[in-house]
């Protein structure tokens, strides 16, 4: 199979380039396997990967224009030559390795943990099955960054707009019956940038390898905010 891989070493190259590779990809080969074969051909090639089964979220890349997790993308489904680039909009550290600092800063900013004002109970805080169901489609996020780095609003304002990943997680805690910081969380999301840069472009929904829907979660936050202010 033919691959065109983005290559860039900011210390040595004046500008990025695309390098072609031929890989023998037997049936069932995932893109991560193909990238490892490419690395065998050229050891200077750099990309992130770890678990190899779509759990750690390390090997997010842009494949033929779409953000995906390399380890769960069968190469047989891809059109040749397969163009593999780093996540769009992120500073390139080397080849497919990008700087995700702003992505993590946005995640941290929404306080991704349960906030309780009541004294902690002696045992666990109970939830009804219906309350627990509210978290389905939210808690599964693995922070791979496929969604936020496919979002044009995040490209333009990565320092101010939280991005789909952080906002999906914000809704995950707003929707959690055990969380007691609804007002504080909503207040923190006010203003024109953090939440309201989302223009429902929905690239995030298309990109999410876990099939989650950040746009829907963002809509829930906006509606809850409206409910709390009228």
């Amino acid at each position: 199979m033919k691959f065109r891989i983005y290559r860039y070493n900011p210390d040595a190259d004046t500008e990025p380039s695309m390098q072609e590779f031929d890989v023998d990809a037997p049936r069932g080969t995932m893109l991560r396997d193909a990238l490892l074969m490419i690395k065998e051909q050229d050891e200077t090639f750099a990309f992130r990967h770890s678990c190899g089964e779509g759990v750690c979220g390390s090997d997010g890349v842009n494949v033929n224009g779409q953000n995906r997790l390399a380890c769960i993308t069968p190469v047989a489904d891809l059109k040749e030559p397969v163009e593999v680039r780093p996540f769009p909009g992120r500073p390139v550290i080397r080849d497919l390795v990008v700087d995700m600092t702003q992505f993590y800063q946005q995640y941290r900013a929404i306080k991704p943990w349960l906030i309780r004002n009541d004294p902690l109970p002696e045992q666990e805080t109970l939830q009804s099955p219906a309350e627990r169901d509210q978290l389905d489609g939210l808690y599964e996020c693995i922070l791979c960054g496929c969604c936020s780095t496919s979002c044009p609003s995040f490209w333009w304002n990565p320092d101010k707009f939280h991005g789909p990943q952080a906002l999906l997680t914000a809704w995950r805690f707003l929707a959690d019956s055990r969380d007691q910081a609804t007002d504080e969380r909503l207040d923190a999301l006010e203003g024109p940038y953090k939440l309201f840069r989302c223009h429902t472009i929905m690239n995030c929904v298309e990109a999410c390898p876990k099939g989650l829907n950040p746009t829907k979660a963002i809509g829930h936050i906006k509606n809850l905010m409206l409910k709390h202010s009228v």
């Binding site: 006010e190 203003g191 309201f196 202010s229």
Partner: peptide
């Protein structure tokens, strides 16, 4: 206001 420019603009 800065505070109103998010939710209010969206609602409008």
């Amino acid at each position: 206001s800065r505070r109103a420019s998010g939710l209010r603009a969206w609602a409008i």
